[in-house]
C-alpha cells in the first residue's frame, strides 16, 4: 500500500545472521529465521543476550504503535498471560537509511491447534474450548475484544498443554469498530452481525475456529449463511456434542463467554456421566441375561427330569 509519506519502502526481508540495532534503547538482536508474515509486518525468531525471542518488524510505524499500545495494556491486566510478554519497543534504521519500527516479545514455541487435535484426538476439542473461553472471558472483563481470532493466531504450548494467543494485533476496546479481522471468521462477512467490538463478536469467531479445524480448506459464503454454517457443524462428528452451543454462539445468543463456557462445561460433564451410566447399564443387562439364561436352563432341566419320570 502506498501511503502519502516522503519515505517509501519495499517489503522487509531480513537475512539470518543480521544484527538489528535499536535506535533508542540500543539493544542488539541477531536474526535467526522468519516465523511468519501478516498484514502488518513480519515476525522473526531472534537471539538477544543468548536467549530466543520473537521480533516483529514493519515499515507501518502507525499500526505497530497501535499494536504495542494493546500489548502494553494487556500487560497491565494483573496475573494473567493473555498475550505474549512484551520485551522491547524500538526503531531500526536499515543500512539504506529506511526506518522500521519493531517490537520484541517472548517466543512461544508450540504446535498449531488443528495439527495437535489431528495427532492427539478430538477429545482435546472440549479442553481447548474451555481454555479459550476462559482467556476470552478475561479479555472481555478487562475491556477488550480479541477481534482477529483465528487458527493462525493460536498455538498449543506443552507441559501443561494449553492453547495460547500469539498475535494480539486485532485487539479492540469494547464498543469500538473491530480493528482487524479475517473474512472467514468475521460475522460481518457472513451477514450475521456488526463489526462492533462486543463479546459476541469473539464468540462467533471462536465457533469458526473449531469449524476451521475440521474444514482446513474453509469454504465460501452463499445465500443463507446460517443454514450453511449449521449444516457444516452438523456434519462433523467431533462437534456433535457441542452443536447446540456452537449454533447459539453463531447467532449471538451469548452475552458473555462465561455463559457459553458454563454450557460447554455442562456438556462435558453430562457426556462423561452418560458414558458411565451407559457402562453400568451394560452390566445390568449382562446380569439380566445371566439370570434369564439361568432360568431357562432350570426350566429345561426340570422338563428333562419330568420326562424321565414319565
Amino acid at each position: 500500500m502506498k501511503t502519502n509519506r516522503a519515505w517509501k519502502k519495499q517489503d522487509i526481508n531480513l537475512r539470518p545472521g543480521l544484527t538489528i540495532n535499536g535506535k533508542w534503547h540500543h539493544q542488539r538482536y541477531i536474526i535467526k529465521k522468519k516465523l511468519g508474515e501478516g498484514a502488518v509486518g513480519a515476525v522473526y525468531l531472534c537471539e538477544v543476550n543468548g536467549k530466543l525471542a520473537a521480533l516483529k518488524i514493519s515499515d507501518k510505524g502507525t499500526s505497530m504503535t497501535v499494536e504495542v499500545n494493546v500489548l502494553k495494556s494487556l500487560q497491565k491486566v494483573q496475573g494473567s498471560r493473555l498475550g505474549p510478554y512484551l520485551l522491547d519497543v524500538d526503531d531500526w534504521v536499515s543500512p539504506y537509511g529506511h526506518m522500521y519500527s519493531f517490537y520484541v516479545m517472548e517466543y512461544l514455541k508450540g504446535e498449531e491447534m488443528s495439527r495437535f487435535i489431528q495427532n492427539n484426538g478430538s477429545a482435546w476439542v472440549g479442553v481447548f474450548m474451555l481454555q479459550l473461553l476462559e482467556d476470552l472471558g478475561r479479555f472481555h472483563q478487562s475491556g477488550w475484544i480479541f477481534g482477529d481470532l483465528k487458527l493462525d493466531n493460536l498455538i498449543v504450548v506443552s507441559s501443561p498443554t494449553r492453547v495460547r494467543f500469539i498475535d494480539v494485533g486485532g485487539t479492540t476496546q469494547i464498543g469500538r469498530a473491530i480493528k482487524e479481522y479475517t473474512e472467514f471468521y468475521d460475522r460481518g462477512y457472513w451477514g450475521m452481525g456488526t463489526r462492533r467490538a462486543e463479546p459476541s463478536y469473539d464468540l462467533f469467531a471462536f465457533v469458526m475456529v473449531f469449524i476451521n479445524v475440521f474444514y482446513p480448506k474453509r469454504f465460501e459464503r452463499g445465500g443463507q449463511s446460517e443454514r450453511i454454517l449449521f449444516k457444516r457443524i452438523d456434519d462433523v462428528k467431533a462437534l456433535i456434542p457441542y452443536r447446540q452451543v456452537l449454533k447459539n454462539a453463531l447467532t449471538g445468543k451469548y452475552l458473555s463467554s462465561a455463559e457459553m463456557k458454563q454450557e460447554i462445561t455442562n456438556i462435558l460433564y453430562s457426556t462423561q456421566k452418560r458414558r458411565s451410566v451407559r457402562a453400568s447399564a451394560k452390566e445390568d443387562a449382562h446380569a439380566q441375561f445371566l439370570m434369564e439364561a439361568g432360568g431357562v436352563t432350570i426350566v429345561a432341566i426340570g422338563y428333562y427330569l419330568f420326562s424321565l419320570l414319565l
Partner: peptide
C-alpha cells in the same frame, strides 16, 4: 517518527 516509541504510543 522523530519521537521515541513511548511518546509516539501516547500520541497514537
Amino acid at each position: 517518527e522523530d519521537l521515541d516509541p513511548e511518546k509516539r504510543g501516547e500520541i497514537m
